[in-house]
Nucleic acid binder design. Structure first.
Length: 104
DNA sequence: ATCATGACCCCAA
DNA sequence: TTTGGGGCCATGA
């Protein structure tokens, strides 16, 4: 029988649907996953991704357009690299939401 | 049970 | 633009 998706699974499902070259905010993902204002839960869920996943976690950023990791961190550099690789411009750790936000 | 801490957000000033 | 305060809630000390 089919199991009800857990909260993290709902989140991963939404994130998986973000198209290449677009980004979504943590709050946007929370809302789309039916979790209301639990934006923080999205960050937690992305940190719990199992190995071998195909979830484009790097397309999730803050509502302000900023990358959520410290600029001097390895994760920050990784995320910027992945975003730029698919055409998303990152200037000073920030993405233009006006240009790149996913709008289903 | 309490306290602090987060890959956060929104509003007001 | 920046700051401050409240909201949210799982997790670990």
């Amino acid at each position: 029988m089919t199991m009800e998706p857990t909260k993290p699974q709902k989140i991963w499902q939404v994130v998986h649907a973000i198209p290449q070259g677009k980004v979504a905010s943590y709050g946007q993902v929370a809302h789309m996953a039916g979790l209301g204002r639990q934006a923080r839960f999205v960050g937690r869920a992305l940190g719990q991704l199992p190995e071998g996943h195909e979830v484009p976690w790097f397309r999730v950023i803050r509502s302000s357009g900023e990358i959520a990791f410290p600029k001097d961190s390895e994760m920050f550099r990784t995320q910027v690299g992945l975003l730029e690789a698919e055409g998303v411009e990152v200037v000073n750790g920030r993405v233009s939401m006006r240009k790149y936000q996913w709008q289903p």
